[in-house]
């Protein structure tokens, strides 16, 4: 009798351990047209559904899906396709890897003391690796992979180069490009609006503000701009935001 009890108990423990190894991916909410691929066929995705490792999820126009993956919240934005490449939960460590074929996802990974979390989003050009943070990742053939960090730290890894990103830094690696763009590009674009040379008159500046670069065709030199030769020095006045 004792022997049977022991066997039953061991069986139950094994059952629970095995179910824990396949971590939970649950659909928190769905808006619009969202489908998942099951056995090579697209099927519509619904709130409350559970998905397994290997699932492919695709969103339509103006649609999104929010998933809960081992406590992490992942929002799959419109016109996106992801695959859950890996999702395991063993003991005190969770390992998730998402493949973003095209589109955009936002992820919020909570800092849990008891759970060591490895969360990766890979695209055809690079990978982002995260711990305890919030970030957006997008990928498309034109703009490449863009990682924008909202909170915490994210590693952007492309072509063997690892970049540590934190708030307001943006990682952008275009297909075929050997290295990502300058990490402060987003910050620069947000604050330094126009750069003029001292040789531009106020009227020319107004003209440029109104007509933009349209007025100057494809020319790289704006009216009043400097034609710099090699070994020249230029004076740049930076007005940093308060």
């Amino acid at each position: 009798m004792k022997h049977i009890k022991r066997l039953l108990f061991t069986g139950l423990i094994l059952l629970f351990t095995a179910s824990g190894a396949f971590a939970a991916i649950s659909v928190v909410s769905v808006k619009g047209k969202v489908a998942y691929k099951d056995g090579g066929i697209w099927k519509s995705l619904s709130k409350g559904q559970t998905l397994l490792e290997g699932a492919k999820i695709s969103t339509g126009m103006n649609s999104y899906a929010v998933l809960n993956i081992d406590g992490a919240t992942v929002k799959i934005r419109p016109l996106s396709m992801i695959r859950v490449n890996k999702n395991t939960l063993k003991g005190d460590s969770s390992n998730t890897s998402l493949g973003l074929k095209y589109g955009s996802v936002s992820a919020k990974i909570p800092k849990l003391r008891k759970l060591k979390t490895v969360f990766k989003v890979s695209t055809p050009v690079a990978t982002s690796s995260v711990r305890g943070t919030e970030f957006d990742v997008s990928y498309g053939p034109q703009w490449g992979m863009i990682i924008y960090v909202i909170d915490g730290n994210v590693y952007g890894i492309g072509n063997g180069i690892e970049n540590l990103l934190s708030g307001n830094l943006q990682f952008n690696l275009k297909p075929g490009s050997p290295r990502p763009e300058y990490l402060l590009t987003k910050t620069k674009n947000g604050y330094i609006i126009k750069i003029y040379s001292d040789y531009m008159t106020p009227n020319e500046k107004k003209f440029h503000e109104f007509f933009g670069t349209d007025a100057f065709g494809n020319s790289e030199i704006l009216p009043g701009g400097l034609n710099l030769k090699s070994n020249s020095f230029i004076k740049i006045r930076l007005i940093w935001p308060q």
């Binding site: 659909v27 047209k33 969202v34 489908a35 697209w42 099927k43 519509s44 995705l45 619904s46 709130k47 409350g48 559904q49 559970t50 695709s58 969103t59 339509g60 126009m61 016109l79």
Partner: peptide
């Protein structure tokens, strides 16, 4: 999940498959 799926119209799947 399967029960809920049946309620959705088939054009959802068709649109996503087309995309």
């Amino acid at each position: 999940g399967r029960r809920a799926k049946k309620e959705k119209p088939p054009e959802i799947v068709a649109d996503v498959a087309y995309i």
